[in-house]
Design a protein around this nucleic acid. Structure first.
Lengths: 228, 228
DNA sequence: ACCGAAACCTGACAATTGTCATATTTTTAA
DNA sequence: TTAAAAATATGACAATTGTCAGGTTTCGGT
């Protein structure tokens, strides 16, 4: 089994602020796990006794609202640490984490994390910086959802998917969400998303092939986002 | 001038995790300031060279959206620390802080904060816990804004104002927002807010006297929130 | 290759929310 | 106190979005 000390993923998250010794301890207690598309890594309300470091795949972090719909708060992929907020706050999970692409993760028991937090200020500050960034992102999402139209938000979501997950050789988005997941990201009804995607197709802004989506005209997308 | 070591406000925020010595240093470098209603403590994009500890009054933290409307992300009062996120992330402020009730704050230069963060893990973890809570709150706001109607959100806002800022002897809310600020909290047009408040008045759910608002029927408000 | 389930699509309509225009009331400041 | 400015209020209407009801297509497993 691979050792954390040699793990490249580490470079992308706060674990890089751990000392050699701390990493060794983490490595000794960690457990590799895999999750298939659709599997839950954890669910809202679960007590987490550790965090999950994503080595491969993608997970959606969502929260069930009182009207029965899921709201996707974030998409997490390689390098992200899941469950950190709950472990630090010593609360049960406020979000569910469901795999939307087969995942390869390391489970790290919370003891190593909490101990390092309490003894290594570098690590604590590194985690703090990450959380500060998440918080700013959340603020931006709040503004977007409440001040932009559904069409603008969907256009933004495509740009987001391109920028964060990239495109394959043929220009198709590496990560294609179902219309329903897309709706849960932007906070709207599935039918609305379908209609707007159809409209984008008719206008030559995007193109689909099977369930893959290719962005054809970024300037037009930007125009939609700007709301003109 | 009063000393941080004796400041009661400290109990409510992460400064309580500082040692006597650290507090003394903070106290020596801090500067008391007052802001009148309408004054900006700082604005979106400002580089902050410290944080602001609120001793009295209330501030709205808001972000301007591309369509020219403000979105209020949070209302901060006694005990809150403003600007912490930006100082920690070493970024310019992502939000503006405007006083909505005359304020009495202490400005604490970032050096003391950052130095303590890097040397006192207790303090770092305490700050982390606070930020973890803010992040969860932000997640909840995202779900609320995208999945609930304007009417539900306004009803929730009244409960929020009552729970967080309390009522005076006569049962009037201690903090009354203008209709415009209320709109910017729930993310809707001012006219919509006015209409819904009128409706609540007609239904005997709330009552107004001048610019003060009194909640008359909490169960009815809860019913509105539940969406039946 | 086939079946059932899930995903996708479209129309028709209703509900919600935003915009504009215009009063009225309240607050503020000279 | 009094005039100007800001906040509140309401109507009429348009735009956006949601819901329901029916389709078709695509996909995964046997």
């Amino acid at each position: 089994m691979s050792r954390c000390e040699n793990c490249i993923i580490r470079q992308f998250n706060s674990l890089r602020a751990m000392s050699k010794e701390e990493l060794k301890k983490v490595s000794d207690t960690k457990v590799s796990k895999t999750f298939k598309k659709g599997d839950a890594i954890f669910e809202e309300g679960d007590r987490l006794d550790g965090v999950f470091c994503v080595r491969d795949g993608v997970s959606k972090l969502s929260k069930l609202s009182s009207n029965g719909k899921d709201q996707i708060i974030k998409l997490a992929s390689k390098g992200e640490i899941l469950g950190q907020r709950s472990v630090i706050a010593e609360e049960s999970a406020n979000l569910s984490a469901i795999a939307i692409k087969d995942m390869d993760v390391c489970f790290i028991p919370k003891e190593s994390i909490l101990h390092t937090l309490n003894t290594n200020p570098n690590f604590a500050v590194e985690v703090l910086r990450h959380m500060a960034k998440d918080l700013r992102d959340a603020d931006d999402v709040i503004v977007n959802i409440s001040q932009k139209t559904v069409k603008q938000r969907i256009a933004e979501a495509f740009i987001y998917l391109k920028d964060n997950f990239g495109e394959d050789e043929l220009g198709f988005l590496n990560l294609s969400l179902t219309r329903e997941d897309m709706s849960n990201v932007v906070g709207t009804a599935t039918e609305s998303t379908i209609r707007i995607i159809s409209e984008f197709k008719k206008k030559g802004i995007i193109e689909t092939s099977g369930k893959k989506i290719r962005i054809l005209n970024i300037p037009k997308l930007e125009t939609v986002i700007s709301g003109l």
